[in-house]
């Protein structure tokens, strides 16, 4: 059976997280991950960084941002009416 090296797995980690690979490659990769603790840890920790990054709650807007956007748009709407 064909197997993947750790190096090859590493190169595909991003595509794996994006679910962007043919099923045959996916199977090969998953077989490797079951047997290789090192690569499994790399995948999990990378995935978790992405989960943290995607958490929108951590974004804070500057105070008054929304109000200023509304004021700016209100002026524009006035202009558009004329």
């Amino acid at each position: 059976m064909i197997t993947l090296s750790c190096e090859e797995v590493r190169r595909e980690i991003s595509n794996y997280l994006d679910d962007d690979m043919p099923p045959s490659m996916r199977r090969l990769l998953e077989t490797h991950l079951e047997q290789c603790r090192k690569c499994a840890v790399l995948l999990d920790s990378t995935h978790n960084v992405l989960v943290l990054l995607a958490d929108e709650q951590r974004f804070e807007l500057p105070a008054g941002f929304s109000i200023r956007v509304r004021e700016m748009l209100a002026k524009e709407f006035e202009k558009a009416k004329r």
Binding site: D18, L42, S45, V49, L52
Partner: peptide, 24 residues
């Protein structure tokens, strides 16, 4: 993207904030 994700991950690992990586 591959490079960026691995680098972001390593930034955490190298700062010993790796505990956070278990949060997910």
């Amino acid at each position: 993207l591959l490079r960026a994700r691995l680098m972001a991950r390593d930034y955490f690992v190298s700062r010993s904030w790796a505990g956070h990586l278990g949060l997910g």
